[in-house]
Every structure is written in C-alpha cells, then in structure tokens.
Amino acid sequence: MATAPAESQKTARIKITLNGEETDVSFAPYKTLLEVLREDLGHTGTKHGCELGECGACAVLLDGKPVLSCLLLAWECDGCSITTIEGLGSNGRLHPLQSAFANLGAAQCGYCTPGILLTAKALLDENPHPSRDQIREALSGNLCRCTGYLQIFEAVEAAMVQIAEWKKPGA
C-alpha cells in the first residue's frame, strides 16, 4: 500500500476570529471555508447540500455578512471574523432567533436551519424591523424542503419582536 499525503498537505494557514475566538488553522490549500470549518476545525454545525452555492445550507457570517462557505476558499478568509451556528447564542443562552425557531416549529429536520438562522441574523442586524416580504427576499437563497417556509417567517418575526423588547431602554 502506498503512503498518503494528509498532514503534509496542510500547507495553507490562516488566522481568523471564529465565533469571537482567535483561531489559527492549517489546511490543504484547495479546501473551501465549509470544509475547513467542518473537517479541520470540528465545527460541524455548518451543513452542506450541494457544494455549488445553490442550497444555502452552508451560510455563515463573514465580517457580519452572510456568505456561502462552500464558494469561498478558506485562504481567502485570512484575518476575517466568522460566525457559525455554534457562535449564535451567547453566555449559555439561545439567541432569540434560535428560541423562536425552536418554539414555533421552524426547524423540522433541522438541516437547513443553521444556514437560515445566520442569514436571518444578518437581516435583523441590518434591518431590525423587516417586513414579511423583506424576510422572504432575504431567505430566498436558503432552501428548506420540510416546512414550506411559513413557520420560518413567523419565527423570524417573533425573534424580531423579542430583540426589540431587549433593546428598549430599561429593558
């Protein structure tokens, strides 16, 4: 049996801020951000459904903007800040989007859920009071085969209300 490359292939190296944590990672240079997150950093919460930028399952936030991690080479992300589903909650608490999705049936099989949650977070960060049509538009690149989307829209709207409550002075 011939010997294999593996570790010796890890010739690329980047420094990123992953969910708020300084992270230094080495990897084979052909790998996408999706692959490095899942395979080299053990962050398997980010999913994949096509590896071609078609389904939206692999969406993460790159410097706060939603990107498809299957379409980015990891080395393009050097110095960037990346948020994945593992970093959405804080201090042991779910993000309002996560609570709303859990409570309102917005996650069925759950496979598209991480990508949709991050896309929705980017939307609410930019526009704290989106209309139903703006929510539809923002999520139109994330496919869900289970829910028919309606409970997802409702969950985003419920989270929107929750976040607004938190932001009220004195809350």
Partner: peptide, 16 residues
C-alpha cells in the same frame, strides 16, 4: 429542537 437550532444534531456526515 434545541439540538437543531444550535447545530448540535449529528447527521451522518457530521461523524468524524
């Protein structure tokens, strides 16, 4: 639901 919204559900391809 909690496992699903936190990305902790382990699907087959998440096993390494």
């Amino acid at each position: 639901a909690r496992a699903k919204v936190t990305g902790q559900t382990r699907y087959a391809d998440d096993i390494f």
